[in-house]
Nucleic acid binder design. Structure first.
Lengths: 207, 207
DNA sequence: AACTACGTAGACCACCGTGGTCAACAATAT
DNA sequence: ATATTGTTGACCACGGTGGTCTACGTAGTT
C-alpha cells in the first residue's frame, strides 16, 4: 500500500525480492515460509509485514514485478518479422538466456506461477499469463516462411521437430547452469554452440 | 519389518501404495503428510504405522517397490542390439509409455527421487539410480550405427538433435495426458503418430 | 538538547498440522 | 470361549505458521 518498500535502498530491496522469489519458486505459495524469507534476506521478521500487509500482498507484488520485467526487458526483444524459423529461434533463445542470466529467479518463479492454482491468481494476472503464452505460441507458429523446407518433407511436422529439438537444447543448457551457476553461463559461447546445431538443422531440413 | 503389509488384499495394498506414491511425488518427503495419505487410501491412521514403523520406512518401501517394477517390467524391454537410433528410440518410447500407462504414479515418484536430497537415499538406492541413468545413457549413445547419416551432416550433432526432438515429443504427450488422464492414452495411436515424426527425421538425416 | 517521525529487530502469540501412540473394539482362528 | 490379529480415530507433545507489538536506533528539525 504505502511506497515504503519502493523507497528502500536498491541493494536491500533486491535482496528481499530475490529471497522471496526463491522461496516461492521452491515451495509454492502455501508451503512458502515467511520465516525463511526474512532469514534469507537478512532482515527482521517485522519488516516484511511493515513493507507488505501480508503474505498474499508480497506474492502479488512479486508477480507484478516479474511481469513488468518481462514486458520491459524480454518481450520487446522478440521479433516476429524474421520469417525464418531457425533464425528467429536463434535470436529468441539468446534473448531468453540473456534475460535468464540477469534475473535467474524470475523465470523460475514465473514457471511455478503457470502451474499454480487458478484461484490464487487474480484475473488480470491470468490475462498477463495468457498473453505470455500467446507470445510463446506466435514465436513458433506465426508469420513464418515455409518455402525453404525441402519438398519431400512435411514442413508442418518438420517445424514441430525443430521446435522440440531447440527446446531440448535449451533444457540441456538449463540443466547445466541451474540456479546460482546461471551467472557463469557464457552467452557468446552459447550462441556459437547453438549456431552449430542450427546449421545442422538447416542442412537437414532446408533445400 | 513384519510381512503384515504384504499379506494384505491386493486391491487394498495397491490403494495404499498409490496414495503414498502420489503424496510423496506431489510434496516430496519432508512436506508429505501421513494424514493425507491415510485419507486418500481410505484407511485409519493407525494402520499405516502398523504396516510400517514410520514415514521413512514407508518411503523406502515405495522406493524398492518402484525399482522392482522397473527392473522386472520396463528395463527388460529395452533392446540395445537394435543398431538404428531412430528404431531403437521408437521401441523404447512405446515401452516407456506402456509402462507409464500401467503405473502412472511410479514414474512421477521416481522423477522426484532423482532430484531428492542425496542424504535421504541410502547408498544401495543411489546405486540403483545410477544404474537407471546408465541405461538411459546407453539407450541413446551405446552401440549405434552411425553409417546411415548423410555425409554432409555431423552425425554426433545430428544424434543429439534427434534425441532432443524425440524427448520433446514425449514431453508434449506427457503434458496432454498428465496424471489420471494417463489411462486414456491410446498406445497404438501414439505409435503411429510417433512413427510419422520418425519418418520425417529419417528423410531429413539419413542417406 | 529535546522532540518527532520513521526504520528496524525479534520476542512473542494463538493456532494448526505434524508424526506417532494407544486404548478400545471388530473379526477371525483355535 | 479364548486368544490372536486387524482396525480405528481420538489423542499427544511438538514445531512451525502468519502476523503483531513493544522497545529501540537513527536522522532530521527546531
Amino acid at each position: 500500500m504505502t511506497n515504503t518498500f519502493e523507497n528502500l535502498g536498491k541493494e536491500k530491496r533486491q535482496r528481499i525480492i530475490n529471497a522471496a522469489l526463491e522461496e516461492f519458486a521452491q515451495h509454492g505459495f502455501e508451503e512458502a515460509s515467511t520465516n525463511r524469507i526474512v532469514k534469507k534476506a537478512g532482515i527482521g521478521k517485522g519488516m516484511l509485514f511493515y513493507y507488505f500487509n501480508n503474505k498474499q500482498d508480497l506474492y502479488y507484488y512479486l508477480v507484478n514485478y516479474c511481469f513488468d520485467l518481462l514486458h520491459n526487458k524480454y518481450l520487446p526483444q522478440i521479433n516476429l518479422n524474421e520469417p525464418d524459423l531457425i533464425e528467429r529461434y536463434r535470436k529468441a533463445t539468446v534473448s531468453k538466456f540473456s534475460f535468464y542470466k540477469e534475473h535467474p529467479n524470475v523465470f523460475n518463479f514465473l514457471g511455478t506461477i503457470m502451474l499454480a492454482d487458478g484461484d490464487l491468481l487474480t484475473e488480470d494476472v491470468q490475462e498477463k499469463l495468457d498473453h505470455l503464452r500467446k507470445v510463446g505460441y506466435d514465436l513458433v507458429y506465426n508469420n513464418l516462411d515455409y518455402s525453404r523446407f525441402r519438398a519431400d518433407i512435411d514442413s508442418e511436422k518438420a517445424m514441430e521437430l525443430i521446435k522440440w529439438a531447440l527446446e531440448g537444447y535449451q533444457q540441456q543448457v538449463l540443466a547445466n547452469f541451474k540456479g546460482e551457476k546461471m551467472m557463469d553461463i557464457d552467452l557468446d559461447q552459447l550462441s556459437n554452440d547453438f549456431g552449430d546445431y542450427l546449421d545442422v538443422l538447416k542442412t537437414a531440413f532446408y533445400k
